[in-house]
Design a protein around this nucleic acid. Structure first.
Length: 256
DNA sequence: ATGGTGGCGCGGCCA
C-alpha cells in the first residue's frame, strides 16, 4: 500500500499536476494540504475519473485539506477535539486497514507573532487528540505539512535558520511529544541522501540551489513501522512549470 | 536590496 502527502498550494491551480502525478505514481492514498477550496467547489469528479474516492475539509483562499483514496474513507473527523478552530487543517479517516490523519500544521509566521502561539497551542491540542486515536488504532498514520523541520539535518542552512520559525526548540519539542505517543518518522527508517528536502521557497531560485527544508512528514505507528518498506520524496513535480513549493512524500507499507 | 515569488482576489494577507 502506497501512501503519499503533498502540499499542493491551491488544488484549483494544481489539479492537472495532481491528476498527472496520481496516474504516474499510483498511490493508494494521497493526503493533500493547502487546497484553498471550499467543500462545495471541490473537484470530486476529477478524482473519481481516476478511480479515487475523495473527502475534503476546505475553505476559500486559505488552508484546506483533502484525501483521495482507492478505498472509501470512513469515520471522518474534521476537527481537533476540544479545540475550536475556524481554520480547516485536519482530516482524519479510516481507509481500509489504516487510520489516517492528514494535517496542515499552522505556519507560525515568526516567533514574535500571535500565529506562533497559535501553532504551539494547536500542536498541544493535536497531541491530546492523537493520544486518544493511538489508544484505539494500532495502524495509525499521521501525515502532512508539519511546518517543522525535525532536526538540523532537515535544514539546508541550520545556522541561518537557528531560532527561526520551523526550527525553534519549542516547535521541535512539540513535534517530539507527538512522535513520543508511539510514532516513527518513516523517512528516517531508511538510509537517505544528505540534503533531501520537501519544500523550497519560490524566491531566489531556492529549488535550483536546493535551499530547502524537510517539513512534510509521514509518521507511522509502531505496528506500521515494521511494515514500512520505503519512504521517499519525489522532486519531479517541483521541477514543473508553475509548481507547488512542496514536493510529494511517499511511503510504502506491506499490509498483506 | 528589510527585498525576493506565488495564490487569492483586487488591497492586503498569508506562506
Amino acid at each position: 500500500m502506497k501512501v503519499a502527502t503533498w502540499n499542493v498550494n491551491s488544488l484549483r491551480v494544481r489539479l492537472d499536476q495532481v491528476c498527472a502525478w496520481l496516474e504516474e505514481a499510483a498511490p493508494d492514498i494521497l493526503a493533500m494540504q493547502e487546497t484553498k477550496i471550499p467543500d462545495e467547489e471541490f473537484p470530486h469528479q476529477a478524482f473519481a475519473a481516476l478511480g479515487y474516492r475523495s473527502v475534503c475539509n476546505g475553505q476559500r483562499a486559505y488552508n484546506g485539506v483533502a484525501v483521495a483514496s482507492r478505498q472509501a474513507p470512513e469515520a471522518i473527523v474534521i476537527d481537533i477535539d476540544g479545540f475550536g478552530d475556524p481554520q480547516r487543517r485536519v482530516l482524519g479517516a479510516t481507509i481500509g486497514p489504516l487510520r489516517l490523519y492528514d494535517l496542515y500544521v499552522p505556519n507560525g509566521q515568526n516567533v514574535e507573532s500571535e500565529k506562533y502561539l497559535y501553532k504551539l497551542n494547536w500542536l498541544e491540542a493535536l497531541r491530546e487528540h492523537l493520544a486518544g486515536e493511538a489508544a484505539r488504532h494500532e495502524r495509525l498514520l499521521i501525515l502532512g505539512d508539519f511546518n517543522i523541520a525535525p532536526e538540523d539535518r532537515d535544514v539546508h542552512d541550520p545556522a541561518a535558520w537557528e531560532g527561526k520559525v520551523h526550527c525553534t526548540p519549542a516547535e521541535r519539542a512539540a513535534l517530539a511529544r507527538i512522535v513520543d505517543l508511539g510514532f516513527d518518522d518513516a523517512f528516517r527508517l531508511f538510509d537517505q541522501p544528505e540534503r533531501t528536502f520537501s519544500w523550497w521557497d519560490y524566491r531566489g531560485g531556492a529549488f535550483r540551489r536546493n535551499l530547502g527544508l524537510r517539513i512534510d512528514l509521514i509518521l507511522c505507528s509502531k505496528a506500521l513501522r515494521s511494515r514500512c518498506r520505503a519512504c521517499d520524496i519525489d522532486p519531479g513535480p517541483r521541477r514543473l512549470e508553475r509548481p507547488s513549493d512542496h514536493a510529494p512524500v511517499v511511503a510504502e507499507f506491506d499490509l498483506n
